[in-house]
Amino acid sequence: MASHAIEVKNLYKIFGPRGRDFVDQVKTGLGKTELNEKHGHVLGLQDINISMPAGGVMVVMGLSGSGKSTLIRHINRLIDPTAGEVLYDGVDVCKMSENDLREFRRHKTAMVFQKFALLPHRTIIENTVYGLEIQGVPEAESRKRAQGWIERVGLKGFENHYPNQLSGGMQQRVGLARALTNDADILLMDEAYSALDPLIRVDMQTVLLDLQKELKKTVVFITHDLDEALRLGDKIAILRDGKVIQQGTGQDIVLKPADEYITAFVKEVNRGRVINVETIMKPLSGNPEGVPVTIGTVLESAARMMTVANQNVAHVVDANGKPVGSIDLGTIISAMVTPISHQLQAA
């Protein structure tokens, strides 16, 4: 089952009884504050255009109130848009009939929630089968599938516990197992890890990355944490006041922040874990020297390999082992340090 990309086109959301009436005015420059003061309507999303990669992790990042949770709810239409389209496999989710939408939600999407949203009166296994149960999959079959996912997320032995007997991290594993059991192409994760302790959060990110390597679902991940965004995202969109202010790969955002707001954000980022060796390598001159480093390796790992080998230079090789460039420790270190220009801009 191949995953498809999700295309969000010209999406607007204005909260309030007459939201539709104000779309044109917003298009011609009516601001969020003005709309609220003059008309009592809240601008949720404004002209969102994002193409979410098929089989990849799309991270939507923003602070609270930026509209990121509103955006993810448009993908399975828990919120109806005021204007615009959300296309999946060529079909506009926003125009689906009630029945089509229900089928779409049942078979194509699965969602993980910030506060887990488990059913408190059901055991872990009963929670995990929920998606299959409402699809009408026979109980024996759905239990078998759910059992597999419970084991994959590391909850074997807890099948007959109730959610309130588990810690937050474990409850979110149930949330993840419940979503994965649905075997949907699209996995929507609404601040799924925001309520977890930092260590458990990193742990859960690893679980997701490991699963994603083999599942290749189209994941939409919402977060307010840039480190999390950079670690998980194949592509990142940054939202502020309902507008996308920058989208691109993690490297794009860290190296070329679109404005001061994003600069302030990326200032604290550990660049050594975001920037790849090929971004800063020099063309190969003469014979490849030092240790070989594969394309896609982040600077921190490259530096570690070089220090372990006790060498100041290395050469970059592509996936087939062919040398394509060279780097040295000095270049790596200067790339890992936040540039002075960014420091000044942020200050």
């Binding site: 929630f113 949203a117 998606g131 409402i134 699809q135």
Partner: peptide, 19 residues
């Protein structure tokens, strides 16, 4: 949130009421 989860998994009105 729990209701939203039930909707997100495609519950019908009756399933949402009953479950």
């Amino acid at each position: 949130e729990v209701l939203e989860a039930a909707d997100a998994f495609g519950s019908s009105q009756w399933q949402r009421l009953k479950n």
